[in-house]
């Protein structure tokens, strides 16, 4: 996956287990070395040996605590909102067919969990299929556009125009043209998710450092080589920014498509619940779709962390490695 993950066991670089000068902990490394080789771990100089790094020992635990501390205000605000809603709905004398209390939504969601799950699966399928198509299209088209400047001028006005279409009007038309199957859902999800990723990728390619490109050219690398070695990796941070935006549209796009016509799915479930005067079930389906979006967003963040380990390395670096002269 990451570049050069396969340096492999068996090689023995001269620096193995040795601490860079000026950093402590070499004794601990000496102790660890037999254990490491016994376990045949191929991770030796992945970074300076662990004991040499200046991180505090309880980094893991304090990071978890810090994460919770960060989340606390949002959790509290959300809980307060739910509480106010609960009190208003139960003490204000409002009919549950107008505004059901959160507790009722939860209870009804549990009672109808089989139907909810049955309708959630097609939505997940449509979302993922549509998003995958959109992702592939964004990579292929952005690369084409990067190589052929005229294509960019031809495509971008069209793409921007595609973002001006009102989904409410388009969704029924797409269903009319392509039926109740998976295809119209894929198309609608792609329509709402493609643009942010495409723009992010194209801008990311352009943001490649001129010095890196010039250096690669001086090394004898061709256009394609430079794209692969420099432009594509340079675009990754931009791409993930676009990905995080577009993934929040994906579930909504799928639900819109289902709303316009489907056999099963959260969209059609919401529509029929509304028609049966069951706002509690509409809200239950809304909660499920929000949870789906949040999960996808979390997944995108996780993938970014895994795909760009150097980002964290840059942030983590608190102290300068000691400067040495030979």
């Amino acid at each position: 996956m990451a570049i050069g993950e396969s340096i492999g066991a068996g090689e023995s670089p001269p620096s193995r287990g040795r601490c860079p000068a000026g950093q402590k902990g070499s004794q601990r490394v000496e102790r660890l070395r037999p254990l490491r080789s016994k376990m045949r771990l191929a991770i030796y100089v992945r970074r300076p040996p662990l004991a040499c790094r200046p991180s505090p020992p309880q980094e893991g635990r304090s990071a978890v605590i810090a994460a919770f501390a960060k989340l606390a205000p949002a959790t509290l605000a959300f809980a307060l909102l739910l509480l106010a809603w609960e009190l208003y709905a139960s003490l204000g004398g409002i009919a549950p067919t107008v505004l059901p209390a959160p507790s009722r939504v939860l209870a009804q969601a549990w009672e109808n969990r089989a139907a909810l799950a049955e309708n959630t699966l097609p939505t997940i399928r449509a979302t993922l299929a549509g998003f995958a198509c959109s992702l592939i299209a964004a990579f292929v088209l952005s690369a084409l556009v990067d190589f052929l400047a005229p294509l960019r001028r031809a495509l971008f006005p069209l793409l921007i125009a595609s973002q001006t279409l009102p989904l409410v009007a388009i969704a029924p038309l797409v269903v009319l043209w392509f039926g109740f199957g998976l295809l119209p859902k894929i198309l609608l999800v792609a329509l709402v998710t493609f643009f942010p990723m495409m723009v992010a990728l194209v801008e990311g390619y352009v943001a490649t450092s001129a010095e890196i490109s010039q250096m690669l050219a001086a090394m004898g690398a061709g256009r394609w080589r430079i794209f692969w070695l420099a432009r594509l990796p340079s675009a990754l941070p931009y791409f993930f920014a676009g990905l995080r935006i577009s993934i929040t549209y994906a579930v909504v796009g799928a639900i819109f498509a289902e709303y316009a016509g489907a056999a099963k799915g959260l969209g059609i479930y919401m529509l029929s619940a509304k028609n049966n005067f069951r706002p509690d079930l509409v809200l239950a389906a809304v909660a499920v779709s929000s949870a789906l979006t949040l999960a996808l967003f979390g997944l995108a963040v996780l993938v970014q962390l895994l795909a760009m380990p150097w980002e964290r390395a840059g942030r983590d670096r608190k102290t300068e490695p000691s400067e040495r002269r030979s």
């Binding site: 001269p14 040795r18 100089v45 970074r47 380990p309 150097w310 670096r317 300068e320 040495r324």
Partner: peptide, 18 residues
């Protein structure tokens, strides 16, 4: 790497270097 004063940093990221 030793001659260039980089021994032990083979698998570091550039952001971790001075």
């Amino acid at each position: 790497f030793t001659e260039f004063g980089l021994a032990g940093f083979e698998r570091a990221w550039p952001a971790e270097l001075s």
